[in-house]
């Protein structure tokens, strides 16, 4: 149909914590500039899947490909791989001992070895982009949740990742702050960033998502365009989940 590049491919991924089988035979492909939204009940394995994609958790079976290349602990330095896969967490996880700008330039300087002046210039640009041009030098503790999450997005973008993973980026926010984070994410998607987003914001999924993946009990139950999933789900389980969250 089109000749976009494949960014992430997951092939028969399995993951267990001890006896608990959390991800079961997951197949998933994310093409360049696509936004894939993962939905599903709490405990269905969405976070674990994201965490396997950037190797914060180690898979027990199956394969993960990045840019068509099979990634393995034995053949790759996972620190290099993680630089290419940005992650935004539910609870922001900003570095409290560093200023906003300090958070953003930390990894470019100390991981990529970028020159400091350049990292600062780029970091400020990113902060301007997420609407925090007046917050460079304050500490994260002085920010609202929405501002914190936008710093976290800028921090991840500073590594120029090929794909961004979002794990319920608005779930810890007061309702009135959700919009500012979603609109930052939407802009990012419009610029062509490849994104995998776990969220309960169905409006965002419908509007911004290219694909929606419904997970239940460690399996992908249904996969389709937002309209298909929201308006005519094939599976009964998808239908009941959707009606429970809308």
């Amino acid at each position: 149909m089109d000749n976009k590049k494949e960014i992430i491919r997951v092939d028969q991924l399995n993951k267990s914590f001890g006896d608990l089988h959390v991800l079961k035979d997951i197949d998933l492909t994310v093409m360049e500039s696509e936004v894939v939204v993962l939905i599903g009940a709490s405990g269905s394995g969405k976070s674990t899947l994201l965490r396997c994609l950037n190797f914060l958790e180690m898979k027990n079976g199956g394969e993960i490909f990045l840019d068509g290349e099979k990634i393995n602990k034995s053949t790759h330095d996972l620190n290099d791989i993680r630089q290419r896969v940005g992650m935004v967490f539910q609870h922001f996880n900003l570095f409290p001992h560093k200023t906003v700008l300090g958070n953003v330039i930390e990894a470019p300087i100390h991981v990529k070895g970028e020159n400091k002046a350049n990292a600062i210039k780029e970091g400020k640009k990113l902060l301007d982009k997420v609407g925090l041009e007046d917050k460079y030098d304050v500490y994260p503790s002085t920010l609202s949740g929405g501002q914190k999450q936008r710093v976290a997005i800028a921090r991840a973008l500073a590594m120029k990742p090929e794909v961004m993973l979002f794990d319920e980026p608005t779930s810890a926010l007061d309702p009135e702050l959700v919009g500012e984070v979603l609109s930052t994410m939407k802009e990012l998607a419009e610029e062509g960033m490849t994104m995998v987003v776990v969220t309960h914001e169905m409006g965002f999924a419908r509007e911004v998502g290219d694909w929606v993946v419904y997970m239940h009990d460690g399996r992908i139950i249904e996969y389709g365009h937002p309209n298909e999933i929201f308006d005519q789900p094939r599976e009964e389980r998808t239908r009941s989940f959707i009606s429970s969250v809308l």
Binding site: L56, N79, R82, N93, F95, H97, V111, K112
Partner: peptide, 26 residues
């Protein structure tokens, strides 16, 4: 918090760099 280590790691920082730059100062 565990999230601090994870944030460092997710940016491509090694275990020891995360320890030195993120965990120990805090």
């Amino acid at each position: 918090e565990k999230g601090q280590r994870e944030a460092g790691r997710s940016l491509g920082m090694s275990t020891s760099l995360t320890m030195r730059r993120i965990i120990l100062p805090q």
